[in-house]
């Protein structure tokens, strides 16, 4: 491998990650509009550039050229800091995400922990943005976001703990490496670790939807109730940064699901592993996120808490127990089966 001095390597990664997020945020919006369009039997953006491909550019320019309005009565510092509090942790989380075996900014042993630590800062941004806006709709939205995030962190973390029990590591790259070989080695299909693995994946995916405030859990934004929720008062790039943060969080959620359950950068057939597989899986999940958004109505706070406490938490706890049991039992069972044959 070519040797690159460490500071230069980091700089390259920082630039790369920011470019990756910006590009993705822009083109995921385009994709979202296309997906929504076709689901609704229309075309979506098509005027700017071929297939409307330059639309994100035009939108970006528009957002940047708009005046940043700071309404009267807002808390000027919180108001300005909040969008950054959403975006920066999302950018930081990318540091530990392994795009391929070698393509990772920092291969940290506690990568999983780092991501969750940063993810919990995100909700701060929403809260402060809503609170700082001094707008009643925004305040209601901020309160909703916080209670929603707290409720969904629990089943998500229980599932993650289960995964750590299975993988014995928090190093994301190692987790991926454990899933090499064929499709059946992916954790989602590793029924020997716990028979409820596919369910665990669904729980994780649902929770990451809720964490990122995506429909059907977009209570915070709820445009038919709260106008635009916490970013009601934001204009121009203030809104743009919130938006980028939201999409960055979606990418992180889907990346984590890919890494933990879908074998990260491993190929389903064990051939040519690499970053393209990782991206393909992530985008497939992102497509599902969009597909879900354009299918369902929105839940309410009670419905959301109900789902979390009645279904997700008990099931993920059962999964935790089962996994614990399997860790002890599977070796015994295996020797028993071996002995029998």
């Amino acid at each position: 491998m070519m040797f690159i001095p460490e500071p230069l390597r980091l700089l390259a990664f920082v630039v790369g990650i920011i470019a990756f997020i910006a590009l993705n945020a822009a083109y995921l919006v385009w994709l979202e509009r296309k997906v929504a369009g076709h689901i609704q039997r229309r075309i979506g953006p098509k005027e700017v550039g071929p297939f409307g491909l330059l639309q994100p550019l035009a939108d970006g320019l528009k957002l940047m050229s708009k005046q940043l309005l700071v309404p009267k009565g807002v808390d000027p510092y919180l108001f300005k800091v909040a969008p950054l509090l959403v975006l920066v942790p999302a950018v930081m989380s990318f540091v530990t995400i392994p795009f391929s075996e070698n393509l990772v900014a920092r291969n940290i042993d506690i990568g999983l922990l780092v991501i969750f630590a940063f993810a919990s800062v995100n909700v701060m941004g929403l809260l402060l943005g809503g609170w700082g806006s001094a707008n009643k709709y925004a305040v209601i939205s901020a309160a909703r976001c916080v209670s929603q995030n707290v409720a969904y962190e629990i089943p998500m973390l229980i599932t993650v703990i289960t995964m750590i029990m299975v993988t014995h590591t928090m190093n994301l790259n190692e987790i991926v490496m454990q899933q090499d070989g064929s499709l059946l080695n992916w954790y989602i299909f590793r029924l020997s670790a716990s028979p409820l693995m596919p369910v665990a994946f669904l729980i994780f995916f649902t929770c990451s939807l809720a964490e990122t405030n995506r429909a059907p859990f977009d209570l915070g934004e709820a445009e038919s109730e709260l106008i635009a929720g916490y970013h009601t008062e934001y204009s121009g790039m203030g809104f743009g940064v919130f938006f980028m943060g939201e999409y960055a969080n979606i990418i992180i959620g889907c990346s984590l699901a890919t890494i933990l359950f879908l074998g990260g950068w491993q190929c389903p057939l064990g051939l040519y592993p690499g970053w393209w597989w990782f991206l393909a899986k992530v985008y497939l999940l992102i497509f599902c996120v969009m597909w879900i958004r354009w299918t369902y109505p929105r839940t309410t706070l009670w419905g959301l808490l109900n789902l979390s406490w009645k279904y997700l938490i008990p099931i993920s706890l059962v999964n935790l127990l089962l996994t614990g049991a399997m860790i002890k039992l599977w070796p015994l069972l295996k020797t028993f089966l071996m002995g029998a044959s």
Binding site: V35, G37, H38, I39, Q40, R41, R42, I43, K46, W291, I292, W294, T295, Y296, Y311
Partner: peptide, 28 residues
């Protein structure tokens, strides 16, 4: 409730994807 609810969600997804692959109906 759990299975009924999940089924209704899956059926919904099926309908939207069915429409997604059909031709558009709008006039440009």
């Amino acid at each position: 409730e759990l299975f009924g609810g999940t089924k209704s969600l899956v059926v919904g997804l099926g309908i939207t994807i069915k429409h997604m692959v059909k031709p558009v109906v709008t006039l440009q």
